[in-house]
Design a protein around this nucleic acid. Sequence first.
RNA 1: GCCUAGGUGGCGGAAUUGGUAGACGCGCACGACUCAAAAUCGUGUGUCUUCGGGCGUGUGGGUUCGAUUCCCACCCUGGGUACCA
Length: 941
Amino acid sequence: MEYNFREIEEKWQQNWKDRKTYQVNEDASKEKFYVLDMFPYPSGAGLHVGHPLGYIASDIFSRFKRHQGFNVLHPMGYDSFGLPAEQYAIQTGQHPAITTEKNIQRYREQLDRIGFCYDWDREVRTSDPAYYKWTQWIFELIFNSWFNKDSNKAEGISSLIEKFETNGNYNVNAAQPEDWYKSIDRKVFTFFSANWQGDFSATDWKSMNEEQKELLLMHFRLAYLADSVVNWCPALGTVLANDEVKDGVSERGGHPVEQKLMRQWSMRISAYAERLLTGLDGIDWSESIKEVQRNWIGRSEGASIRFQVDGHQEQIEVFTTRPDTIFGVSFMTLAPEHALVPKITTPEFKDAIEKYQAAAKLKTERDRQSDVKNVSGQFTGAYVIHPFTGAKIPVWIGEYVLLGYGTGAVMAVPRGDQRDWDFAKKFNLPIPNILEDIDISEKAEASKEAILCNSDFLDGLSYKEAVPRVIEELEKMEIGQGKINFRMRDAVFSRQRYWGEPFPVYYKGEIPRIIDSKELPVTLPAVDKYLPTESGEPPLARATDWNYKGNTSHPMEMNTMPGWAGSSWYFLRYMDPHNNETFADAEKVKYWGQVDLYMGGAEHGTGHLLYSRFWTKVLADHGYISFDEPFKKMINQGMILGRSSHVYRINGTNKFVTFENKDEYDVQQLYVDVNIVDNDVLDREAFVNWLPEYNNAEFILNEKGEYTCGWAIDKMSKRWFNVVNPDDLCDKFGADTFRAYEMFLGPLEQHKPWDTKGINGVHNFLRKFWRLYHDKNNVISISNDAPTKAELKTLHKTIKKVTEDLNRFSWNTVVSTLMICVNELQEQECNKKEILEPLCILLSPYCPHIAEEIWEMLGHKDSVVAQKWPVHNEEYLQDDAFDYPVSFNGKTRFFLSLPVALSQADVEVQVRGNDQTVKYLEGKEIKKVIVVPKRIVNVVV
RNA sequence: GCCUAGGUGGCGGAAUUGGUAGACGCGCACGACUCAAAAUCGUGUGUCUUCGGGCGUGUGGGUUCGAUUCCCACCCUGGGUACCA
């Protein structure tokens, strides 16, 4: 029988389905292992060869672990809320649920062909009400939480209310902005005085009405409603989170984004900044993605200092990482939008300041960034008083100071900061020297090594010594303190879209109220159109049939949750996907625990991977789960790039010149469909028929009479005509070949070009493998004879290497090892059962269909999936006589037959082939013989 | 600028702890089978060579009996990030 992969693969895929081979259940007698893929958004385009790369790798690892006796959880699902389906709905009126369902089916068909071992009974979809019921539940949990900085944990809001009732907020150390009380509406809180600083007593609390209590609590909750400056994208008609904006335009679609003040839900992720940062040390992720998160969190240590404005009540607070350079301050710079600017600007500079502010406002975020080199600024006419010297320091505004970072104000030390230095030079401000022996006429010196001078009580100190000294002094004077600043902002959680989770929230007046968790889910209502209303409200404002009937008189929240809501906890739902009582049964969560191996792209560093960690920590703080990091180890697969082909048209003609001769003409390079190019040779007939414009193309051929195409490596895209579809490859070569080839391509984490012609090599390997088990007439033929030593050695070294490679996540080298093994066994004409049976198990993670088929042909009734992973025996690997090359002065001079008695003490070397013992080499006495592992003996004279 | 991953034949890549660099595959060349082609099988394939050997892992140094591997300096490429005070 020939290797008929089509029949075999169809047969076993059906068989696995019927036998539920890959169903897993909690089993206390077995050790668990959780292998997870980042679940896909089911787009309409289907899969190309790049998508399954990570799925194949994780599938192989799951199967390997299963063979090793682990109880492996390996689920798959869909991140099925999202923009494209909604955009399609806007254009066609088709409900996004229908589009999504169709796309999911297409995805499933494509995935099934590749032969994955997912337990499909555990499939989750974020857009399924049975799923988002629990997304809504978690939202309510977060809403009903505050972050206690004393315990460094989220706690239930009731513990906060208890505190308020006994002591007001006197002993409350909650995560919230320092100036939170400033945004309290004084029309509602009339009993607080004008200069109220945020403190209230138990009596105050008790005297408040329901509305006032709720408004106050909102400033403590981990999910809160607030007026915040958000990234508004007019083209998409929605707000975006910071991680969804890149270079001032939306990540999806590249539409411009503007800053806008809106009342929005936010998540107080900033409360977890420190824990999100330190948690990185304990997880096995790539250094680069950890670095992305560290930068995003942006922790910097320094001090905040308040400068008194000369002649005003006001103080300007700055944050600096270099409080040691305080004696080098020669001016202050505020962000143009800083709230104090209008208050302190003197009349004579009012016009100039307003002009500057207006100009700054006109510039987009993007313009401001691209204009970095241009130093600009404007003096306000105001001065602050230096806290130590009493000197008058001019206050400027400048674009280089950002309102969103720190306090929006900097103390400028031109001596130590290049931007301050540039600013000082441009506007002729003084550059006082505070560092010993360093020239500052050309540039600033930011070194932390230098010794301070001209700095009063800091003279002679280094950065390390000076910082605590200054902070001590500032605290004594009550004008500053040591401070840790974070770059990370809270995450906006509202989207003005239809196709997302509805909030379980209705409004009583201005006050949002949570819908009782027993009444969840609040399902997405039908709407007549998927566009915002004429008055600019989100699409959900069109809904008339909310399933939540309890408060028909009260309006519902009309925003929906962002895309990352559902994906922030899906890995927990897989553990218990059908539970209707809780998001996942506590016992089951305890059993499956953390994800042991998480496979996916590296592009989610500041989005999904951060939010998942955040939600996991909240759930852990409330005791629902016992771990506060979701993904123990993560591997980010690289992108598979396309190899696109070029043809060269002579300008002004319809003549195409072959690659070899293209330099002789003035040509234009054009992309050509890779499917009509074989081994860089163009199928001219297919080309002529490909596009109408090429119907009458003429060719200038090479010497062989062929047209050779040029090529380049590009991203796989329809635009370059270089998309390769996995279905075609499964048709032509089979899923087993496809799986092995994707791994064989190169290291998983690296970006690498796809090259279809290389797949033949792997296909041939599988045919050879098949032939190992068959005789010349293609009849299964296996002998029960004892294997030879050489055969055992081949097998055992293969077992050893394959096992080692899989344990160190080196998927690509395994394929080569198996190829070498098959080549050797073929040479040895091995047909021994004792060798070929374990080999079949070794292959099965990579090529499960062919392994199953052969396993059955060998007379087994059970599945190869259930077989124990073979273990190698060192005994078979030893060489009994090997010629060791002897290296003398770095060059191989002669060979020794081993075993010989050699140790470092021996100075006599026995030469192969005779009994001669040498004491001298090239006339020099041998002093030392070095025996090293592997195959070299070194002689030192 | 900073962070991060890399740089090995015509190509993808291997070399795990410092130990025969280029495994395995593609491509290419030659041969077998064939009227012929495809497919398949076999042989060869870093480079120079006076056939002894010489040179070779981005560049230049260093450590070592021995360096793709370790150390120092530099160059280049991919990815991330930034007037972050």
